[in-house]
Design a protein around this nucleic acid. Structure first.
Length: 215
DNA sequence: GACCAGGCACATC
DNA sequence: GATGTGCATGGT
């Protein structure tokens, strides 16, 4: 009989870390850049997001006050490589408006906020759903919130830990109840799951050479 | 030229 | 509550 899901999650982390080592997520020079990147990467390859971020940086737009004054059409043209640029320009604007109104445009002030309250605020911003909110929480605000994405669901379902039609909250609750609430751990674990999924769990039902096979 | 990539909101049933 | 659809670029 297989061990309980929670103990499997601990074993899987150890195996992944041993196999792949630290992943050094989330790339970003500032907290604000990490937050903007979280929105731009929605359903999009990170390489394309990097191009969009570079455009913003070259235009001097990687801060809340500059983006707050920028017209949405101009913003859309700058982030064009990230895809869905019209939608994402609005979403970035909504986030920046929220940051300016609530925290004077300061990610450091936002980081001082209480975890549950800040998460609720983020989810109330149009264009920020659970994954984007939690990416900002974990990777920009240092809050111990586990990020669930398509990769996470795929890996866990392929290894019969949880069915992929379960809700975001169900997956997140499994990680939260199985692991110590620790920011570096959650950071590394999520990045390792992405790494694993890209390498091993893409199309086949079983993954030859998978480092967590049999766990 | 398909197919995919670190989602989300909105309409409809 | 579940299901379907629009949004778009760039790499493989």
């Amino acid at each position: 009989m297989k061990p309980a899901a929670s103990s499997r999650l601990s074993s899987i982390y150890k195996k992944l870390y041993k196999a792949f080592g630290p992943q050094h997520w989330w790339p970003g020079e500032t907290l604000f850049e990490v937050a903007v990147g979280a929105i731009l990467t929605q359903n999009t390859n990170w390489g394309n997001v990097e191009k969009a971020i570079a455009n913003l940086r070259n235009a001097g737009m990687l801060n809340a006050s500059a983006l707050g004054r920028l017209h949405v059409e101009r913003l859309a043209s700058l982030i064009r490589p990230a895809g869905y640029y019209n939608v994402k320009a609005k979403r970035v604007k909504h986030f920046v408006d929220y940051l300016i109104k609530g925290y004077e445009g300061s990610m450091k002030k936002m980081r001082k906020g209480e975890q549950t309250a800040v998460r609720e605020e983020l989810l109330a911003v149009n264009g920020i759903g659970p994954e984007t909110a939690d990416s900002i929480m974990l990777y920009a605000l240092d809050k111990p919130v586990f990020v669930i994405d398509a990769y996470t669901k795929r890996v866990l379902s392929r290894h019969n830990i949880m069915a992929d039609d379960k809700s975001y909250e169900s997956f997140q609750e499994l990680f939260h109840s199985s692991l110590k609430a620790d920011v570096p751990l959650f950071n590394e674990y999520h990045a390792l799951l992405v790494r694993l999924a890209k390498q091993h769990c893409r199309t086949k039902p079983v993954c030859p050479g998978c480092p967590i096979e049999g766990v």
